[in-house]
């Protein structure tokens, strides 16, 4: 064997693939740049203008409406809580029908297809639809959030169910356990942490979402933000943004402390099997 020369540690195929991927990304980037005709208009003047807005929002924050803002914040949180609890509960039951390893193929495919279609429509669009039907207020917000988060959780939960070891199901069946008992005793225990973590993750997302739902008329703190921005009242808007930030950040910190982390539980599951 020729011992001089270099030994490549990746195959020729991989090298070509990576090169193509890199070139493709570059092409996409410049195409989009060209398409939008972005340029640095206005120069430093605009940068300074933007900074002055930021200064007004942060340094001259207007707290006079704090009661309204906090009430609206509570409304946003409630919208997220309701939507998350309802969607997680329903998704939990539906996910057993959607998981291919414990359900009939027809049922599973149907559930997955419906969930995929629902998921393909963004939360804001769902909310817009319901606002149009039901009028302004938090209720269409809850419904809009519910639909997308239900479909998302059905996918997440049913994937966790599909990762459950075949042996668990086999063993329970062999004892004479019914389907429901097999689900409750053989499938539910290993997916518990995944279900809780996915729900927590989705709650964080729903909370973020619920604070901008007000822009399309679904109540909550987003409505306050949209109102103040519309009249260029950056002093008040600054306070609203601060509250939104505190809401999301504190929930994330809380879940972090509770170790409700999807990545972690997936790693743990795969190491078990």
């Amino acid at each position: 064997m020729n011992t001089t020369g270099k030994i490549s540690i990746i195959s020729e195929k991989q090298r070509v693939l990576y090169t193509l991927l890199f070139i493709g990304t570059l092409v996409l980037y410049f195409f989009s740049l060209y398409q939008l005709k972005l340029e640095f208009k206005g120069g430093w003047e605009n940068v300074l203008k933007a900074l002055s807005f930021a200064k007004r929002m942060l340094l001259h924050m207007d707290l006079s409406d704090w009661k309204d803002v906090l009430t609206a914040a509570m409304e946003s949180i409630s919208i997220a809580v309701l939507a998350t609890i309802i969607s997680a509960t329903l998704a939990f039951f539906v996910s057993f029908a959607a998981a291919s390893n414990v359900s009939l193929r027809v049922v599973s495919n149907l559930c997955k297809a419906v969930a995929a279609v629902v998921r393909a429509v963004p939360t804001l669009i769902w909310t817009l639809i319901f606002v149009a039907y039901l009028g302004l207020g938090p209720f269409p917000g809850v419904l809009g959030l519910f639909f997308h988060s239900f479909a998302y959780l059905v996918k997440a939960f049913s994937q966790s169910i599909e990762e459950v070891k075949e042996g668990n199901i086999e063993a329970l069946k062999a004892t004479g356990a019914s389907w429901v008992q097999t689900m409750a005793k053989g499938v539910y225990p290993p997916i518990t942490t995944a279900v809780i973590s996915w729900t927590a993750l989705r709650f964080e997302f729903n909370l973020g979402m619920s604070s901008i739902l007000g822009f399309v008329g679904a109540g909550g703190i987003g409505m306050e933000l949209s109102n103040t921005m519309r009249i260029f009242d950056f002093e008040k808007a600054g306070f609203v943004v601060l509250i939104i930030f505190l809401m999301s950040f504190s929930v994330e910190m809380l879940f972090h402390k509770l170790k409700l982390n999807v990545d972690k539980c997936i790693v743990k599951d795969s190491s078990n099997s």
Partner: peptide, 16 residues
């Protein structure tokens, strides 16, 4: 099935 016990190579216990 309840009258037929079964034991498996990989034990198939519910880990948690």
């Amino acid at each position: 099935r309840r009258e037929i016990g079964m034991i498996f190579q990989h034990y198939n216990l519910i880990d948690r």
